[in-house]
Design a protein around this nucleic acid. Structure first.
Lengths: 355, 355
DNA sequence: ATGAAAGCGCTAACAT
DNA sequence: ATGTTAGCGCTTTCAT
């Protein structure tokens, strides 16, 4: 005994065949019409009209099965509370939209396992992957490459240079900050670092120390701010407590520098007058009047442009060399650090220092 | 004349057939093994072993073609510079991961056309869509629903209630802020609003005005801060310039309130002493010592939980009623507004006011 | 418990 | 310029 009524089905999106039927052509004609193939004006017109009527949109899922392209780029990112990353996401998103790719976002937790992460990243046949600021980024990168998915690292690179990546020239930046502070007559330096295994933190830290050492001054004190606001607050307070408190603190990123500025005030020291604090990133908040943070600006736009271009090339089959591109930034001078001579102003009224 | 050498092909990811062959079973067996179907212990073991060796991961793209589920949830969002949204993204991302969905992020521009947006959203057969803070959200919502894709609005709802959504109870929140300010003996009120067609801004604004009116006090001045930092700065400065300058400013969100606080200082008025400023959202930055912003906290966690649960139910076929769920928040008392009587402290040391 | 076969919506050779 | 055909990698009846 069969059911009398046909099964009620949810209205399904129209397919290319539906359009073909309505327009009186074959599926292939429809496909060609939507992909810039050869179709007569006449047919093309009928096809688009039918498509419009039926509200047809090609299923990108089905398409990706045959083209072997998903149109999806994965972006793995942490520390969304650090304003730098939302800014990065906006830039990436802009570029990707221009290039007709969609952005699949993976907000990675602090300590995640590698495997589940990989299942997520590799299960979808993402066309490419951007690894920004994840602590397991370097490991992820090698795994993904084994699976033949183009990967590129952003702002946090593989220290051994075994994966393609883009960063600001951290060494140059940190060295310039050190020279700036030296020129400002500071003598007792300290560094608030990020998490231990962060390449970014290590590079900036190392270069800063070298420059200070080269000037013949004592080794800067170092405390980890763990890349968090609270961590940096604690770190700064700890640095300020000692009798040999520093007269200049370099925070490895702005997120922590902003915490440091406030911590210093809490401790009764006004940055720029009683103590100098310099950050790295030049996030939007750094320019806020409440902070006026002196900081080294990362060229975010250029970094994302370079990264996406290279990634797309790799997707198009051009092999991506394991090269780390290091782009130069600029030291933006505001008010949280004593100003040495040589500060200049650009056309837009921004003060900067080139040593 | 044919080419002699076969075309060199990039190593392709292994397929279910590869695994089946290696394990000596059929494709269907592999599929069942990976989907909790009926397979003998023996076969299952061989299948997983083969899969491990070949590094096989089922193609979710192909799967979605047959199951008609993509496992993708679209999230459309603007104003990433407003720290509220990165926070929201983190919460959404957490929940989605738990539920085995991936997040496709659409950072919508200020003024985008509807159509390209729709092509993007509907082309991928997204299982569901979250519309947060887009100015065209209400229009997008109706369009998507016509295409049978579950949609839910977040923090910015359809004023006519023709689409499901979640917000904080904006009316209750704004009214409470007004009562708080009234209790603090303020008399000349002003509002810094968001963009004109934002439901959120309108709701908060309307309720605030009603409460002030009900108290028999003159209509608050209103200036648009356009949801931007610069806009809010200008708006505040403008308000402060007049001879009849307000003694209390309600900013429709924290992002603008933070600008207002700094603008007030620029104008020589210290918030909490010379003028009172209250925000809405309770973003992380509001708690920073530099601001200590008094603000109405949105229950972000509950909002996203509610939203995702409902969205997933809709995806599972349970029809989603066009209901706007309004969750209660809490007025967090910090230092930017004069404190009336009745401020209490919770277990975590947070000061709040319930009127 | 297992396999064969059909089909999801599309694209891409290959004919014509 | 257009249609036919054969998959893409998977799930899902339907037999066995």
């Amino acid at each position: 005994m069969k059911p009398v009524a046909p099964q009620i089905r949810i209205a399904r999106p129209p397919t290319g065949s539906d359009v073909a039927r309505a327009a009186g052509v074959s599926k292939s004609a429809v496909s060609r019409a939507f992909n810039g193939g050869l179709v007569s004006e006449d047919a093309r017109a009928r096809i688009f009209e039918a498509a419009r009527l039926l509200k047809y949109r090609p299923s990108l899922t089905a398409r990706s099965l045959t083209t072997n392209r998903s149109g999806l780029i994965g972006v793995a990112i942490t520390h969304l509370d650090n304003q730098f990353y939302p800014e990065v996401i906006e830039h990436i998103s802009d570029r990707l939209r221009e290039e007709k790719y969609r952005l699949v976002l993976f907000v990675t937790q602090g300590a995640t396992d590698l495997e589940p992460m990989l299942d997520e990243l590799l299960g979808y046949r993402l066309d490419g992957i951007v690894l920004a600021s994840s602590s397991l980024a370097a490991q992820l990168a090698t795994e993904c490459r084994e699976s033949n998915v183009p990967v590129i690292m952003f702002n946090n690179i593989d220290p051994q240079g075994r994966a393609p990546g883009v960063t600001t020239d951290n060494a140059a930046g940190a060295a310039q900050i050190a020279r700036f502070l030296l020129a400002g007559d500071h003598r007792r330096f300290a560094i608030v670092t990020g998490i231990a295994d962060s390449s970014t933190s290590m590079e900036r830290c190392a270069s800063f120390r070298e420059t200070i050492a080269a000037a013949g001054l004592p080794e800067p004190a170092r405390v980890s701010g763990e890349y968090s606001f609270e961590g940096a607050t604690r770190a700064t307070l700890e640095l300020l407590r000692g009798k040999d408190a520093p007269d200049a603190i370099f925070c490895v990123n702005d997120h922590m520098a902003l915490a440091a500025v406030q911590a210093a005030r809490t401790a009764g020291r006004e940055p720029g007058r009683d103590i100098s604090i310099v950050g790295f990133d030049n996030v939007a908040i750094a320019a806020w009047p409440a902070f006026a943070l002196t900081t080294y600006a990362q060229p975010v736009r250029q970094m994302t442009d370079n990264m996406i271009s290279r990634l797309l090339q790799a997707i198009d089959g051009k092999p991506l060399p394991d090269e780390t591109v290091r782009l130069p930034g600029r030291l933006i001078v505001r008010a949280t650090a004593r100003r040495p001579a040589g500060v200049r102003t650009d056309e837009e009224g921004v003060d900067y220092w080139e040593g």
